[in-house]
């Protein structure tokens, strides 16, 4: 999947769309809409929790990760790579 255009808005499923069960360093996530299970590591569960279906731009998401989870060392390019993975998995959509 190509990286989304600059300024793209990233959205996750609305609340209730995911069943999230922390295991250890991994978190098991059941995606109700697809019926698929994903094993995620930080910061993917945090990204999904912040995005919700309202949607955020890459920069806004970066700010929220720093504020809410103290993940200040995340760079925009690293975050974009994680988002691309979540888009390919169908957990995040762009518009």
């Amino acid at each position: 999947m190509d990286t989304a255009a600059p300024g793209a808005i990233y959205r996750a499923d609305p609340p209730g769309g995911l069943v999230v069960v922390p295991l250890d360093a991994f978190t098991a996530v059941y995606h109700r809409r697809s019926g698929m299970t994903h094993l995620l590591t930080e910061p993917a569960p945090q990204i999904l929790a912040i995005l919700g279906d309202a949607g955020l731009s890459l920069d806004a998401l970066l700010d929220r990760l720093a504020d809410d989870y103290d993940l200040a060392d995340a760079t925009a390019s690293a975050l974009a790579a994680r988002l691309d993975e979540l888009v390919a998995a169908g957990l995040v959509a762009t518009s």
Binding site: R33, S34, G35, M36, G90, A93
Partner: peptide, 16 residues
Amino acid sequence: EQGRRAALWEAEMARR
């Protein structure tokens, strides 16, 4: 029901 869910998800991924 599970088959329906998977089929509609494929349609959604094609839409995207």
